[in-house]
Design a protein around this nucleic acid. Structure first.
Length: 150
DNA sequence: CTTCTTACA
DNA sequence: TGTAAGAA
């Protein structure tokens, strides 16, 4: 059996409508979650968004926390902002100087347009920081860890 | 017909 | 969150 497709759970294959259907939310909500920094879809230059299987799972997890556990989108966003990205990707000291994420903020590091030289050419979607807790258990742990602070 | 952005109820 | 307009 030759491997025809080099697809895995991280390969973007679902259109926004297909992904929305799998997650159980509207296309509009899909875009809103993206705008809020909860998800980073694959977006070929100027083209349509594509989502991987892992993206769908990530969204399903978000959905559970938002809908059933009543965790606000802002709370999740804030929790993401607590990620010690500089530690995770171990960027050089020089790059931390004028880094907004390192200075501390209320936004996930991947929501900043202006990135330091180290992150400059990194794709946040595939960055170790963003992927640090892609499965629901990791997300759940991270949320519970910070819940008291919110 | 699907998706995109932007706007508004 | 839903709905809509106009463009692609």
């Amino acid at each position: 059996m030759a491997t025809i497709n080099q697809t895995d759970n991280n390969t973007p294959v679902y259109s926004i409508s297909a992904a929305a259907k799998l997650v159980g939310i509207s296309v509009h909500t899909m875009r809103m979650y993206e705008k809020e920094g909860l998800i980073i879809p694959f977006k070929p230059k100027g083209r349509n968004r594509l989502y991987s299987y892992n993206d769908v799972e990530r969204l399903k997890c978000m959905r559970v926390h938002i809908k059933e556990k009543k965790i606000s989108i802002n709370a999740i966003k804030t929790i993401y902002s607590f990620l010690p990205c500089w530690k995770i990707i171990d960027c050089p000291e020089e790059d931390r100087e004028n880094c907004e994420a390192y200075a501390g903020s209320d936004l996930p590091c991947w929501m900043y347009n202006q990135k330091n030289s180290f992150c400059k050419d990194l794709d946040c979607r595939t960055c170790e920081v963003y992927l640090s807790f892609k499965n629901c258990d990791q997300i759940k742990d991270e949320i519970n860890k910070h819940l008291r602070r919110l």
